[in-house]
Amino acid sequence: MTFSEITLLTTAGFAAGVLNAIAGGGTIFTFSALLAVGVPPVAANATSATAVVLGSVASAVAYRREIAAAFRKLLPLCVISMLGGGIGAALLLWSGDRTFRALVPWLLLFATLLFAGARQLQKVVQARAALKANATQTDLALPAQGLVSIYGGYFGAGMGVMMLASLSLSRDSDYHAVNAAKNLLSIVLQAVAAVVFLMSGIVDLKLSLLIAVASIVGGWSGVVVARRVPEAVVRGAVIVSGLTLSLWYFVT
């Protein structure tokens, strides 16, 4: 690798760690950086997904008190996340480079628009949960998390936003409590997907390790950012970057 490629991947890994700790969307950067250095689409997605697991672990450790307080309630969601993550990863390997590359700009655009409308989506979901109370929490939380997990195992970008919305069905509206749960479940489904990818031999281990180290630093730093930097600033940067990248892949 050249120095510029190392710099690109390291910066993308750090940014992904920060953004995934705050609200998700960081995979957009690591995946795009891997494509930029010549990694094929499916391998780029698998390598990116494997790399950011450690960054999610760092974020979860920083939220350890919130996670410990609700761990038993999160166990059913952890199980469904494992199943969904494995299914999504298998679907990615089955689809192949040609199909996945055709879907990339649409997936990036979907993830970016979802991120942009995250607040509105959460308000709608929380309003439904308030109307139906316990019945909604029981009936919708697990299947919603299952669908999010399949998507997360397949692509990942935008998964955090979808998960924040689905978790609103089973948790209170406190941002940090929901975000802590999202980080734990992200680890679970990403870890299962990473195992599937590693067993397939499609992951570039050297590139994955480089991104992983940077994402660990970014994941830990992201919690600090989430508490101190205005969320609107970070969200604006993600939206602009996501729209730019999706446009790029539409025209290339």
Rank of each mutant, 00 (worst) to 15 (best):
S81A: 14
E5R: 08
L131T: 05
G146K: 06
D204C: 10
S168Q: 11
P76C: 15
V125A: 04
A23S: 14
V188G: 06
R128M: 09
R72T: 15
V225P: 01
I239S: 11
A21T: 01
L169H: 01
G160P: 02
A102F: 12
V124A: 08
A157R: 01
M159S: 11
L209G: 11
A36T: 13
A44Y: 08
G26K: 05
L207H: 08
P230T: 12
V39N: 07
R65F: 07
T27D: 04
Y154I: 07
R171C: 04
R228P: 02
L131Y: 01
G146S: 14
T10K: 11
G146C: 13
L75R: 08
A89M: 13
N183F: 02
P105Y: 05
G117P: 00
Y154R: 12
W106T: 08
S200P: 06
A12L: 00
A16I: 00
L185Q: 08
M159V: 09
L205C: 11
N45W: 04
L167E: 08
N183M: 06
F71D: 06
V161N: 09
V18K: 10
G88T: 11
A36I: 08
I22M: 06
I202K: 08
N134R: 08
V213C: 10
L114Q: 05
L121R: 01
A157C: 06
L103I: 03
V233Q: 06
V196N: 00
V148Q: 13
V203D: 14
F14E: 10
A36C: 08
G219W: 04
R235K: 04
P76E: 15
F250A: 11
C78P: 05
L210I: 12
I202P: 06
V39L: 13
S200F: 06
F197K: 09
A21S: 14
D139I: 02
R98I: 06
A212L: 06
L121Q: 00
G86A: 01
H176T: 14
I22N: 10
T27V: 00
I150L: 02
L34D: 09
A89P: 11
V79C: 13
W106Y: 15
A180C: 08
M162R: 04
L92N: 06
G153W: 07
Q145M: 14
I6W: 11
A181Q: 15
S149D: 10
P230K: 13
Q122R: 11
L9A: 14
T7S: 15
L164Y: 07
V195Y: 03
A46V: 06
E66I: 05
A141R: 10
A51T: 04
G17Q: 03
K132V: 02
S170H: 04
R119P: 00
A33Y: 15
E5T: 12
L185I: 07
D139L: 03
F115S: 08
I87Y: 09
G219T: 08
G25P: 01
A214W: 07
D172V: 00
T252R: 14
A23V: 12
L205K: 13
S95F: 07
S241P: 00
S4M: 02
A46K: 15
R65L: 04
F71C: 09
V148I: 15
A70Q: 14
Y154M: 04
V188E: 02
L131S: 05
K132F: 05
V203N: 14
T138H: 07
L9S: 11
Y175A: 04
G222I: 01
T2L: 09
Y151N: 07
V223T: 05
T244F: 13
F29I: 06
S59L: 02
S95Q: 12
Q126S: 03
